[in-house]
Simulated scan of single mutants.
Amino acid sequence: MSTELVAVTMPEGTVPPPLPGFVVSSFSPLVAVAADRCLTARHGDPPAADAVGQRTAVVLVSGSGDARMAEHVADAVDAGARIGPLLFFQAVPNSVAGHVAARWSLGGPVVCLCPTGEPKAEGLAYARLLIEDGDADEVLLVCVEQAGAAACAHAVLVSEGESR
């Protein structure tokens, strides 16, 4: 099984472009940029909107989730402020994973993990299970963390039988 077909790293401190529908935090835009760069390197441009989906799963791994958004919501609740409806949409990491799957017409499962051990290792293990069980032909694994003032995302495509 090949695990390092395409790897993309968003350096710490990188500010990704805004992602429509996602506000307050860099978490979702970082996921989208890392996923887009990884998928573009392997598959070219995203397919047309009516394209039949590839059997590519999306596995999003984060030990802390969207920490900035959670902090923003907690501060708003503490202050008695109204919480905007977009925050309900992006309150779970699978919203951005689903966004990536829809943008790329990916026909595999969408899974979000909060690892108890090393994030990439746990994500790779889960990706291998999806392939071995026949649920996907390849898996886009995206690891994202927001730590202190920095945030970073890494994306890799995992597939079986690749010789590249």
Rank of each mutant, 00 (worst) to 15 (best):
F88M: 07
A153S: 07
L39T: 03
H72G: 05
D137F: 03
L87Y: 06
H72C: 09
H99T: 09
V15A: 13
G44P: 10
S64I: 01
T3V: 03
A7H: 14
V31T: 10
G63W: 14
A48F: 13
L87E: 07
A150N: 08
H43W: 13
P93G: 13
D36N: 04
D78S: 11
A51T: 08
V96I: 10
V15F: 10
P20C: 05
V24R: 15
S163C: 10
G161F: 13
C114R: 15
T56H: 07
V111F: 11
V23Y: 09
A81L: 13
M69E: 13
G44H: 12
L86G: 04
R164S: 13
F89Y: 12
A153P: 02
F88K: 03
D137L: 03
D45N: 09
D78T: 04
P47M: 13
E160P: 02
I131G: 11
D45P: 07
A57Y: 08
V23N: 04
A127M: 09
A147S: 04
V33S: 11
A51N: 07
D135L: 09
V15T: 13
V110E: 08
K120F: 14
C143T: 05
V158T: 06
G84T: 11
V15E: 15
P18V: 02
A150M: 03
V144L: 01
A102D: 09
E138R: 07
A67P: 01
A48I: 11
R68I: 06
C112Q: 05
A151T: 05
A79Q: 02
A151F: 01
Q146L: 15
V156A: 14
A153D: 08
T9N: 04
A153I: 03
G65F: 14
G98P: 12
G107I: 01
A125D: 14
A155V: 00
L157G: 00
G161E: 15
V23E: 10
F88Q: 04
A81E: 15
L113H: 08
A79R: 06
A81D: 15
V58K: 01
V96R: 01
V24D: 12
V110C: 06
L19D: 15
L141E: 03
G63S: 13
V33G: 07
H72P: 07
D36W: 01
K120G: 11
A79K: 01
K120P: 00
V73H: 09
F27Y: 12
A121G: 03
F89R: 06
P93Q: 11
E71Y: 10
A150D: 14
A49W: 14
V23S: 06
D66F: 05
R37P: 05
P46N: 04
D66H: 02
P46F: 09
V58M: 01
P17V: 01
H43G: 01
F27N: 05
D36G: 04
G65A: 14
A151C: 06
M69V: 05
R164D: 11
P20A: 14
D45Q: 12
V77K: 07
V61I: 07
